[in-house]
């Protein structure tokens, strides 16, 4: 029998702790598929964040390092400079990267650190129980904003990809979503390009992945995908914001 699809060897054969329908599993798989296809599984070092993906080192079949909340880019910068021949990536959520770690990611991009960041944006704090994140949409209910986010109190949601695209050191910035099979294929291409940028040592590469959180959004997994397409994509437009010519 000929293979059409098999689970990547980059993922360990264990069940994840993620809730049913959580797209973290898809994002993990895409990163590992890209590394497997590029033959980099033995060469890669990942940095896990604090958040739902804190235990991603139990699932990703590469060397991983845990970091303090929001400090994954700082840890990755150190690993990257100490081991310049390795492939280094961070895998961070929006509570980790966009709020407490905003300073680290901006300065890592600003210094042009040659690692890749996969930023999973699900517009809420998942692990701690659905509090409002910097990326929570206007009107979206959370446990710390039970009437929905209001602009005059909390400001507008932060568009991290656009912010980083203004920094010269970030040479590859793209936003993708995981709500349909077509978008998942595009997401894999974007992650592949981000690692190509790193393999060529061109600079900092960043992929924002719009993801779902069925549990804290209070929707079932299928409704969550529809909610993502209807509410998140209009505010966080998909597409490439910056890409070097060498990987086109």
């Amino acid at each position: 029998m000929k293979k059409i699809f098999e689970y990547t060897k980059g993922m360990l054969p264990v069940s994840t702790h993620y809730c049913p329908g959580c797209t973290h599993g898809i994002a993990h798989r895409l990163v590992m598929e890209v590394l497997e296809e590029r033959g980099l599984l033995g060469e890669s070092i990942g940095v896990a964040p604090i958040g739902c993906s804190i235990l991603s080192h139990n699932y990703m079949n590469v060397d991983m390092c845990e970091s303090a909340h929001g400090r994954a880019p700082a840890v990755a910068s150190g690993i990257r400079r100490a081991m310049p021949d390795k492939i280094v990536f961070t895998y961070q959520g929006d509570g980790d990267l966009a709020s407490i770690g905003a300073g680290e990611i901006v300065h890592a991009a600003h210094r042009g650190e040659k690692f890749t960041t996969i930023f999973v944006n699900n517009a809420i704090y998942g692990m701690t129980g659905g509090q409002m994140a910097p990326t929570t949409l206007i009107g979206q209910k959370s446990t710390t904003g039970i009437e929905g986010r209001k602009k005059e109190i909390s400001g507008m949601p932060l568009r991290v990809a656009e912010m980083l695209a203004t920094i010269d050191g970030a040479v590859f910035v793209e936003r993708v979503a995981l709500n349909t099979p077509a978008n998942i294929r595009k997401a894999k291409k974007a992650i592949d390009k981000a690692f190509a940028v790193q393999e060529k040592r061109l600079g900092f590469s960043f992929v924002e992945v719009l993801s779902t959180c069925p549990t804290n959004w209070g929707l079932n997994p299928v409704e969550s995908l529809k909610w993502l397409g209807k509410n998140m994509i209009p505010y966080y437009p998909l597409g490439n914001l910056r890409s070097p010519e060498e990987v086109e």
Binding site: M1, K2, K3, F5, M11, G25, I184
Partner: peptide, 18 residues
Amino acid sequence: GSCALMCPDGVISIYTEE
């Protein structure tokens, strides 16, 4: 392959006859 692409938990493998 859409189902396997969408599955977050790696449940589905797809094969075809040679």
